[in-house]
């Protein structure tokens, strides 16, 4: 799933290994896990007044054609009009600490907030190249959408040297497609967070029981059905022009076979489920009784 506004960049893959040194294939996609994104946002919130942007190290795994950013940590740096400084010692310490918990995650690149790419970006990129060599370094620029009227979004870049003589401050940032990736478990966490968006308050209460979550999902499905019904009726009445693509999707979706749910299958499965439910409640009752019996004084 793409992150951020669509760009007009065409992602060309060079056949020869001209661009990025030593790697047999070029990186084609960068995927980012939500935890890394949220960490960057949190870091941005906690910046000092003097800082225009914040930078940090991206940790993750890489395959031949894909870089998966799974985690990140903040790094101290300072930028003035004359110089840029990155706290290398801090970077090392944090990397070692992260390695203790998750040794599989290695440095894959760096992030910064804001979407400007300048000389300092090139210098910092050059610094990170030493850490990731011989693999390419990825630079993730996150636009937090706070400044100006820019849209929030995330872009990923690889670098390529430019000029007759390779200098650290000279490089071309080549855009790479960047996607958000999450697994089932992370998905439910995101759902939890997005559900707080609908209400006006910033907080949602948890825990929710499975039944509550199910109820919400069913309600959403019913709303969607209502919407579809309203649309279909409008098309039938000639108030709206029907979109053939939508019609096709609707036919595929609603035509899904439910043959597996014929009566006998339903009945036996119902019995099984009820059985398990009884069993679970019986076990709970027994456990409770047993715990309370321990408190009865033996005369």
């Amino acid at each position: 799933m793409p992150l951020g506004p669509p760009s007009s960049a065409i992602h060309l893959q060079s056949v020869s290994n001209g661009g990025t040194a030593n790697s047999s294939r070029t990186v084609q996609t960068v995927t980012i896990h939500p935890v890394a994104l949220f960490s960057i946002l949190d870091h941005y919130l906690r910046r000092t007044d003097a800082q225009e942007r914040v930078i940090g190290t991206l940790l993750g795994t890489r395959t031949e054609t894909e870089i998966e950013v799974r985690n990140c940590f903040a790094v101290l740096h300072s930028e003035t009009s004359e110089q840029v400084a990155v706290d290398m010692e801090y970077h090392r310490t944090m990397y070692e600490l992260h390695q203790k918990v998750n040794p599989k995650e290695v440095i894959v690149g760096w992030y910064s907030t804001g979407s400007d790419l300048n000389t300092y970006s090139a210098l910092i990129h050059n610094f990170y190249t030493h850490d990731t060599a011989p693999h390419p370094t990825v630079h993730v620029a996150m636009n937090t959408g706070v400044q100006g009227d820019e849209k929030p979004g995330v872009k990923a870049y690889l670098s390529s040297p430019v000029g007759v003589f390779a200098k650290p401050e000279n490089c071309v940032f080549i855009p790479v497609p960047c996607e958000l990736r999450f697994n089932d478990a992370e998905r439910s966490g995101l759902d939890l967070l997005t559900s707080s968006l609908e209400s006006t308050s910033l907080t949602t209460s948890s825990p929710r029981s499975d039944l509550e979550v199910l109820e919400r999902s069913i309600k959403t499905v019913m709303e969607m059905l209502d919407r579809v019904l309203a649309y279909v009726r409008a098309v039938l009445a000639g108030e709206r022009e029907g979109d053939p693509a939508i019609g096709r999707y609707l036919m595929d979706t609603l035509g899904t076979s439910t043959e597996g749910l014929e009566k006998s299958g339903f009945a036996s499965s119902l019995q099984d489920t009820l059985m398990i439910s009884y069993l679970a409640n019986l076990v709970r009752a027994q456990a409770e009784v047993s715990a309370r019996l321990q408190l009865v004084p033996s005369v």
Partner: peptide, 10 residues
């Protein structure tokens, strides 16, 4: 327990 997402995250 409540879950909070800060405005920027939201």
């Amino acid at each position: 327990l409540k879950i909070r997402s800060n405005p920027l995250l939201g």
